[in-house]
């Protein structure tokens, strides 16, 4: 059972005025942080302190604060989403830290995710990859066929769901020494490849999404597996293997 206490910490936080300026780490002292606060509540507390001192608060991305929207990011003590596994930064709690700790907080670092301000980065490259092929080309009339017309083996449906659980946070890219987006892209490709509804366009989809991924400046995958370790949703690198197979057979058969 948890017992809540208060701790004092030192923060080293990346501050950068905008995309054009150079940034640097600033040091802040923050006292009386409850260990049952979340990491972002700790940052709220810091920002409240900064505002009261008439200083500019730290900008960071967040919204749902329950690990599902994928908006929060942060490199904490050298790890994407901080020192716990299977969670996003907003689900990280201060009970993971000790009194007197110094905590480093930096933005995602990757050429395809330029910094906008402080800890906020631009991940719109992910959207453009989706726009290139992350869909099934059905119209939205609702006049398709009955939802139960095609049975899908539970095992396939479950696997498709596991791949679809990706929240598009970008931790995989941030943590990869090559800045590769393969885990993210392969999760989407796999979700559709595993379902009968997605199979029809599988060839075009994988070719288009990979082309866009390359155009956005993401690096190559060298199978280090770091992405899988830091992924908050446990997306498996099996998906990368599946995508590679899809890609190879698509390249071989495509007449484009």
């Amino acid at each position: 059972m948890s017992t809540t206490k208060n701790i004092n910490i030192t923060l080293k936080i990346w501050r950068q005025k905008n995309a054009q300026s150079k940034g640097n780490l600033e040091t802040y002292q923050l006292n009386n942080v409850s260990t049952s606060s979340s990491f972002l509540e700790m940052l709220d507390q810091l920002n409240e302190q900064l505002v009261n001192e008439r200083k500019e608060p730290v900008a960071f991305d967040h919204d749902c604060r329950e690990g599902i929207c994928g908006m929060c990011s942060l490199y904490i003590n050298g790890r994407a989403h901080g020192p716990d596994t299977g969670i996003t930064t907003c689900q990280l709690h201060m009970r993971m830290f000790n009194d007197g700790d110094t905590i480093y907080v930096e933005p995602w670092r990757s050429t395809a995710f330029p910094v906008i301000k402080d800890l906020v980065v631009d991940r719109s490259s992910f959207d453009r990859i989706q726009q290139a092929g992350g869909f099934v080309s059905v119209n939205t009339s609702g006049r398709t066929m009955d939802a139960n017309a095609i049975p899908v083996p539970k095992a396939d449906a479950d696997k498709a769901f596991e791949a679809a659980a990706c929240i598009g946070c970008g931790a995989c890219v941030a943590t990869c020494k090559n800045g590769s987006a393969m885990l993210f892209v392969s999760a989407k490709v796999s979700q559709f490849a595993l379902l009968p509804q997605g199979k029809v366009e599988a060839t075009d989809r994988v070719l288009n999404m990979v082309r866009q991924m390359d155009e956005e400046g993401f690096g190559n995958c060298t199978n280090t597996g770091a992405c899988e370790v830091e992924c908050p949703k446990g997306i498996s690198i099996e998906n990368i293997a599946r995508m590679n197979r899809e890609y190879l057979s698509a390249s071989a058969t495509s007449d484009k």
Binding site: A147, P151, K154, A157, D158, Q191, Q197
Partner: peptide, 19 residues
């Protein structure tokens, strides 16, 4: 539901493959 399944939304299924 028809629409979402056609779009590839992976709803939970039973062992028989139905929703």
């Amino acid at each position: 539901i028809d629409q979402c399944v056609a779009q590839g939304v992976p709803f939970a299924r039973e062992y028989g493959g139905l929703l």
